[in-house]
């Protein structure tokens, strides 16, 4: 699971509607991927991202210290950094924990498991 995907997932336990995004990554294993840099792609994805969640996640993982708000102008260095964060950090295993209800979503073989049991739906 790349961090761009992590930025799109949120807790969906019934009645959990507070602090349900972003999911906190715990006990994770990371593999570095290599992706071709494309500045236009990164720029065009910005309005589909949740910047605050991305900044929070990358800070807690210790992989980047992004500004709290999305800068108005993104220089090449920042675009390269975003490229790496979003597309080249692959989480192969671990778990995502909801900060609202503590539900745990496991990650195995690089795939997040968002399934709930019937009582949680």
């Amino acid at each position: 699971m790349r961090l761009i995907t992590h930025n799109m997932l949120q807790c969906h336990v019934k009645g959990c509607n507070k602090d349900n995004f972003p999911l906190k990554l715990e006990e994770i294993e990371i593999e570095e991927l290599e992706a071709e840099f494309n500045a236009d792609f990164i720029k065009s994805m910005l309005n589909r991202l949740d910047w605050k969640a991305l900044a929070q996640t990358t800070f807690s993982l210790g992989i980047a210290q992004l500004p709290e708000e999305m800068p108005e102008e993104l220089n090449d260095e920042m675009l390269q950094q975003l490229h790496h964060i979003l597309l080249e950090v692959d989480i192969t295993s671990g778990r995502m924990v909801c900060q609202g209800c503590n539900h745990v979503y496991p990650i195995r073989d690089g795939i997040p498991n968002m399934l709930l049991t019937e009582s949680e739906v």
Binding site: M1, R2, I4, T5, M8, L9, Q10, C11, H12, F21, A35, D50, L87, Y105, I111, P112, N113, M114, L115, L116
Partner: peptide, 16 residues
Amino acid sequence: KIDAINTDLVNGLLPR
């Protein structure tokens, strides 16, 4: 590059 998610329909994608 495909980002596969194990979930029922689109659970976990909304409202994000």
